[in-house]
Amino acid sequence: MSFNEKIHWAAFVALTSAFGWYFLAYPWQIVGTRAGVAAAADMLLPVTIIIIGAMSLTAAFFAIRAPKEAHLKDDERERTIHMRGTHLAYYPLVLGVWANLFAIFYQLSAAVHLNLLIATVVVAELVRVGSQLYFYRRGY
């Protein structure tokens, strides 16, 4: 397994666990109020710290174990994999933007918009990282 693939696995696990916790623990009963935004902000802080921390630790761990691999530049296959993953992530991103536009028409609360945007980014990232992992496993 290449260094990039290991980092992708770490990103996938970190994203799933951190945002899984966020969406499960979010106090949905106050999503329609002003406090819903503050709650999201409070919860996003630990989520961000967990993701950055987990990614940095994983990258450092694998870089120390195999420094040569960590310094390798992406080759054409890896660039293709990254491009295809990013392309696939574009679709949930567009769907999320449209969902937000409809939320504006229905005059939903700011916290609903915020959570919808967070969900859009998370789903797009999971599609990107997940599809890239699939392509890594498949060979391209």
Partner: peptide, 22 residues
């Protein structure tokens, strides 16, 4: 060649079609 070991493995197994340059 200037590619990773995994890319050579993928080419060898017929899973990845390399560029003309590679």
């Amino acid at each position: 060649v200037g590619v990773t070991r995994q890319t050579i493995a993928a080419i060898e197994q017929g899973k990845y079609s390399p560029s003309l340059e590679v």
